[in-house]
Computed example of a mutant assay.
Amino acid sequence: MRKIHINNDDNYATPPYFYKELDKRFNFDFDPCPYCEGEVVDGLSIEWGNSNFVNPPYSRKLKEAFVKKGVEEMRKGKLCVFLIPVSTSTELFHDWIKPNATEIDFIRGRIKFGKLDEDGNFYLPLNKHGKTQSGTKDSMVVVFDGRSATL
């Protein structure tokens, strides 16, 4: 049996091409989970913008907390677009995502999340064999759009 190494580091950046495609459509004005090494931004305790891009940490407790906060922000009339791992058998999916999402898109293939260098340039870390590898999970874009509820 092949052992798969899973890096549980919550600090990975969204590939710029992927973010740009979503930003063209949704015109984001805030990111409560910005990628930053060493610096902590507590997106759970601050007010979010009107159009939010959210790629939360993938550890279970933090991911759940951000999804629940996104639903709260949606109920205030805001747009929250999440990039999260596919986990359709979970309570989070059935109790929070499915009943509140205005759109769910499953991403074909696996996204290669990366890191940012000290100049802010995106790069893909190499594994021990000198190759980049895709994420260990499938991804989905989940949209909570509360804008029409406030019109």
Rank of each mutant, 00 (worst) to 15 (best):
residue 37 E to A: 11
residue 105 D to S: 08
residue 62 L to I: 12
residue 111 I to Q: 01
residue 114 G to E: 12
residue 80 C to S: 15
residue 34 P to S: 09
residue 73 E to M: 14
residue 70 G to T: 08
residue 114 G to A: 09
residue 131 K to L: 13
residue 96 W to V: 01
residue 25 R to G: 01
residue 79 L to K: 09
residue 11 N to R: 09
residue 54 V to Q: 11
residue 140 M to Y: 00
residue 91 E to C: 04
residue 8 N to W: 03
residue 150 T to N: 14
residue 71 V to L: 08
residue 110 R to G: 01
residue 77 G to A: 08
residue 146 G to C: 03
residue 99 P to A: 10
residue 141 V to H: 05
residue 68 K to I: 11
residue 124 L to G: 00
residue 132 T to M: 03
residue 123 Y to E: 13
residue 120 G to P: 03
residue 81 V to T: 06
residue 118 E to F: 08
residue 107 I to S: 02
residue 39 E to R: 14
residue 123 Y to Q: 10
residue 151 L to A: 14
residue 95 D to L: 09
residue 144 F to D: 13
residue 94 H to V: 07
residue 24 K to W: 04
residue 6 I to Q: 13
residue 83 L to N: 05
residue 120 G to E: 07
residue 40 V to S: 13
residue 31 D to P: 01
residue 43 G to W: 01
residue 87 S to K: 12
residue 77 G to W: 07
residue 137 K to S: 13
residue 135 G to E: 15
residue 19 Y to L: 15
residue 72 E to N: 09
residue 115 K to M: 06
residue 63 K to D: 06
residue 62 L to R: 10
residue 124 L to W: 02
residue 29 D to P: 04
residue 105 D to G: 01
residue 125 P to M: 04
residue 68 K to A: 03
residue 61 K to C: 01
residue 69 K to H: 03
residue 32 P to E: 14
residue 117 D to N: 15
residue 85 P to Y: 04
residue 13 A to N: 10
residue 106 F to K: 09
residue 151 L to S: 15
residue 112 K to L: 03
residue 118 E to A: 14
residue 138 D to L: 10
residue 6 I to T: 12
residue 90 T to Q: 08
residue 107 I to T: 05
residue 151 L to W: 06
residue 91 E to A: 12
residue 63 K to R: 13
residue 117 D to K: 11
residue 1 M to P: 03
residue 80 C to Y: 02
residue 42 D to N: 15
residue 38 G to N: 11
residue 28 F to L: 09
residue 108 R to S: 08
residue 24 K to Y: 06
residue 56 P to I: 12
residue 54 V to Y: 07
residue 50 N to D: 13
residue 7 N to A: 10
residue 120 G to V: 05
residue 47 E to F: 01
residue 100 N to C: 03
residue 85 P to F: 02
residue 7 N to F: 00
residue 111 I to V: 10
residue 26 F to M: 11
residue 63 K to A: 12
residue 119 D to W: 07
residue 8 N to E: 11
residue 74 M to Y: 01
residue 110 R to F: 00
residue 91 E to L: 06
residue 84 I to Q: 04
residue 144 F to Y: 06
residue 136 T to P: 04
residue 82 F to A: 11
residue 44 L to Y: 01
residue 103 E to Y: 02
residue 101 A to K: 03
